Computed example of a mutant assay.
Amino acid sequence: MSEAIKRYRNVVDQPWGRMFYDLIYRQLDIPDDRSLEILDFGAGFCLTADHYAGHHKVTAVEPNEEMISLRVQENSYTLVPQGAEYLSEIEDSTFDVVLCHNVLEYVEDAESVLNQLVRVLKPGGILSVVKHNDLGRVVAYAVLNDDPRAALDLLCKEEAEDSMFGSRNVYENEHLVSFLADRMELADTYGIRTFFGLSSNNEIKYTDEWYRSMLELETKAGTMDEYRKIAFFNHLIFRKKPAII
C-alpha cells in the first residue's frame, strides 16, 4: 500500500480531518425521518457513506482498492468497487441524493460524469459537489507553510497540478453552475476549511473546546461570501428541476 494513501487515511481520523466531514453533514442537513436512496460517487474511505447508512440506503462507488481496504464500515451500505463506468448501469431517477466530493477534479471527462449523476437523480433530488478552491490553497501556502513563493506560483498557474490521485484540474464554481443551469438549480454554496487548516499548532486541536468553537466558527464563516472565496474547499448543493413535459 502506498505511503500517500496511509497518510491520507490517518488525516481523516485527526480533528482537522473529522471537521471536514462534520461541516459537510451540517451543510447538507439531510433529515433522518425517512429512508432516502443515496449515491456516494467516489466514496474514498466511505466515511460519508457509512455516516448516512445509519438511517438511509447508501450505495458507495469507489474504484481504488487501497482506499477500499481501509474503509469505515460501522453501518451497512452497498459497496461498488468500480468507477464512472458503473453509472451507465443505473436507471434514470434512482437516487434522492447524489454525493460527489473532491472527485470531478480527477476524472477524465467531468462533464460526462456530471451528466450521468444528474440523470440518476430524481426530480427534486439533491446533488452535493465538494471541490477544491485554489484561492484557499494560496492562503494555506502563504500562511501555514510560510511559503509565499509557492502561493504566488499557485496564484499565477495555468496548468493542472499533480496530486496523489493524478492530475488535479481545478474548475471554477461558475463553470459548474453554468453547465448544470438547464437541469439543476443552485440551492446553496458553502466554504469548508477557511480557518482550521491554517494553524500549525496541532496540539490544541485535540481539545474539546477548540473543536467546538472552531466548528461553530467554520459553520458561520462557510455561509459568508467573504470567507467562501478563500476557503480551501467549496460545497455546492443543487436541486434537480422537475422534468418538462
Rank of each mutant, 00 (worst) to 15 (best):
V107M: 10
L215C: 09
N169V: 10
Y190L: 00
P81I: 09
D109L: 07
N133T: 11
N133M: 01
M224V: 10
E108L: 02
N201H: 12
Y86L: 02
A181C: 00
D134P: 00
D146H: 09
E91H: 05
S88R: 12
L144A: 13
A181S: 15
E218G: 01
T78K: 10
L99W: 00
W210P: 09
F196W: 00
D109Q: 14
M164Y: 11
T189D: 08
P81E: 12
S112C: 11
D182K: 10
V113A: 09
G125W: 01
N115R: 13
P123H: 14
V98Y: 02
S93N: 15
V129D: 06
L186T: 06
P123V: 10
S88A: 14
I90V: 15
D188M: 04
M164K: 09
M184N: 07
L87I: 09
P148D: 00
L176Q: 08
V103P: 10
S163T: 14
V177I: 15
W210R: 08
E158A: 01
D96C: 05
G197I: 01
E161Q: 14
I90A: 10
E203M: 04
H132N: 14
R183W: 05
Y171H: 12
R212A: 03
L198W: 08
L155I: 00
N201A: 12
E174P: 01
D162K: 06
T223M: 11
P148I: 12
Y171G: 05
S213L: 06
W210C: 12
P123C: 13
L144C: 04
E158Q: 11
E218T: 11
A160R: 03
E159A: 11
T94M: 10
L215A: 12
K131N: 07
V129G: 04
E174C: 00
N145G: 02
P148V: 06
N145Y: 13
S213K: 15
V138H: 03
L104W: 03
L114P: 04
E105C: 03
E172H: 14
I126S: 02
E209T: 12
D96L: 01
L186F: 04
G125I: 02
M184L: 13
C100K: 03
V107C: 09
Q116L: 04
A150M: 10
T219M: 01
L144T: 11
T94D: 03
E105R: 07
A221K: 01
H175R: 14
E158V: 05
L127A: 07
K157W: 00
N145F: 10
V120L: 09
D208E: 15
D162I: 00
V139Q: 02
V139F: 14
K205T: 13
V103K: 05
L87R: 07
A221Q: 10
L87A: 04
D182N: 14
D96I: 01
D92I: 06
F195C: 14
H175L: 11
V177S: 06
S128Q: 06
D92E: 14
